[in-house]
Simulated assay, not measured.
Amino acid sequence: MGFREAEALLLTLVLGLCVTQLEAQLQVGFYRNSCPNAEKIVTEEVVKALVTHPGVPADLLRLHFHDCFVRGCDGSVLLDSTPGSTAEKDSPINNSLEGYDVVDNAKTRLEAVCPGIVSCADIVAFAARDSVKLSKGIPYDVPAGRRDGRVSLSSETFTNLPPPTFNLDQLTQNFASKGLTQEDMVILSGAHTIGDARCSSITSRLYNFNSTGKADPSLDPAYAAKLKKKCPPTSVNGNRGVDMDPPSPTIIDSSYYRNLLFHRGLFTSDQTLMSSPVTAAQVMKNAFNDFLFNRNFAAAMVKMGRVEVLTGTNGEIRKKCNVIN
C-alpha cells in the first residue's frame, strides 16, 4: 500500500469514527434520567394545540424541515431577529411558518421542571414526531441529544431551502447537500400529504408558467381550473390557503403520490418527481401502499433529524427558544 492509499484509508477511518461518535451522541430516551417527562410534556402541548388548530401537525412538520435544512437541526429557525441581524424566521421564505407557540409553550413547562436540560432543537423534533402520529402516520422514536445553535441568518434560507419551483435535478442536489439521497427526497416530499399552501406560491404556475402567460402544461387541466377558482390572479388573494392533498389534507397517507400519477401535484417540485423513470417508479411504489410509505416516511424523518446536529459541548441549551442565552 502506497502513502496516498494509506492516507486515504486513515481519512476514511477517522470520518467513520466521527460519524459513529455522532450517532452515539443522539440517543433514543436521551432525557430518560435528566428529564423523564420531557417527551410527554411536548406531546401534551401538541395535542392541546391540535384541539383548536387542526393544521398544527403540518405546521410542526414544516418547522422541523425548515430548521434542519438551514444550519442543521439546531433550533436556529426559532430565534428572533436582532437589531443587527435578520433571523431565519423573518425571511420571506419563512413568513408563513407557524407552530412557534407550541414549541415555546413546551419549553416554558420544561424549564419549570428541568431547567437548562431540554434543547429547543429536540422539542422541534419531538413535536414533528407527535404530529406524524396524530395524523395517523406510523409512530417512530426520536434519537435526541441535539443542542441549540447561536446563529440564525435570513440570507441562508435562500441558499438552503428548496423553493416550490425546483426541478428534479435541483431538488436532488439540494437534498444531497444535506446528506440525503434522491429516494429520501421522494419520501420526504410526501410530507405534502398534509397541510396547505398559500395561493402566492402557485400563482405563476397557474397563470404565467415560465413567462408563457399560461398554466403549467404538466398540470391536470381540471385540477388547474379548481385551483384558479380558489386562487384568482390578484395579489390580495395571495394569503389564501389551498390544500396540498385535497383527498385527505389531515392524514399522512399515500394519496399524495396518487395525485402525482394524475398530474395533480400542487407545486412544480411535487410534479417533477414524475419526470424521471427512477423517481416515477418510487412514486408508483408508494402510491398504492400506505404502510410502505408510512414506514419509509418515519425512517426518513429520523434520518433528516440527524442533519448537521450540534451535540456534546457544541452550541447551548437555550432558556428561551427565541433568544440565545
Rank of each mutant, 00 (worst) to 15 (best):
N239Q: 04
T311I: 14
G305A: 10
N94D: 08
I202L: 06
S189A: 10
Q271C: 08
P143M: 01
F126N: 03
G137V: 11
T203W: 06
A128P: 07
P139E: 02
S201K: 13
L180E: 02
N322V: 03
T311A: 10
H66L: 07
L310S: 00
D243Y: 07
P143S: 05
K133I: 08
A176D: 11
G213L: 05
N239Y: 01
P115W: 01
C199P: 06
F288K: 05
A112L: 11
L292H: 10
N237L: 04
L78S: 05
N105R: 15
F65M: 10
D59K: 04
K303A: 03
S76F: 04
V242W: 01
N289W: 09
K178C: 01
L78E: 02
G241F: 05
D245R: 09
K89L: 09
K229H: 11
A87F: 09
V309T: 12
D220W: 04
E88P: 00
V307Q: 06
E308G: 01
S34E: 11
R205M: 12
A215R: 04
F65V: 12
L9V: 10
R32M: 04
P163M: 06
V102I: 12
N94W: 04
V142Q: 11
P92D: 05
D253Q: 06
L180I: 03
F158E: 15
A225G: 03
Q271G: 05
G55T: 08
V102H: 00
V283A: 10
A176G: 08
N239T: 01
